[in-house]
Amino acid sequence: MGNKLISYSSITKKVVMALAGLFLISFLVVHLGINLLLLSNDDGASFMVAVGFMTTNPLVKIMEIFLMGGFAIHMVIGVFIQIQNWLARPVRYKVAGYSHLSFFSKYMIHTGAIIFIFLCIHFTNFYFVKLGLVNPPTGVGKEDFYQMATLLFADRFYAVLYVVLMIFLGFHLHHAFQSAFQTLGLSHTKYTPFIKVVGTIYSIVVPLGFASIPLFFIFIK
């Protein structure tokens, strides 16, 4: 795959990465929508209905393959491009670069790596349990995601870690959203400012939505 990846043009790689990224961005909204059901005061009944749908619906099963593919493509190309970028400047500057724009864009590989670590933890806690690769906590069924989530968020350390990771997710998304459109060639005096505003709102609201759940479990429940 390595050689093949090199022979693709830099713009093609970036476009594929941007498309995968936008797909992941749309997925996050669905994921958040289901997670927010944890906040409803019905001991997880509505949440489990949604989980039931997501684990059995054949269309969702197909989308799951695309989703894993999306993650894989986004990460493989991201790391590949980053290595190329490091190699493009073998001797670094003594004085760090000074750039006016997009602060978070400088740390995409770092925030991306943090999200990847979170993803590994997240998969071990939920997805691999469902697949039967990891044993569920004692006394919890392997598809009882409500109990798993409740147990995890009861652990203060995990809950705080989760909130912190959501902040980094927000940093990543802040640059990612508008950058994806720029890469796809969608730059326009009328629409670009709008896209940037939507991106900023998205990068605040979505991580905040996710973070609200452990905060709810710590402080309210």
């Binding site: 790689k13 190329q84 670069g97 750039s99 006016h100 724009l101 864009s105 995409m108 640059h175 720029q182």
Partner: peptide, 12 residues
């Protein structure tokens, strides 16, 4: 040359 990451330092 490296790949563009839409940082915008070039424009600045």
């Amino acid at each position: 040359f490296g790949n563009c990451t839409n940082t915008g330092a070039c424009e600045a």
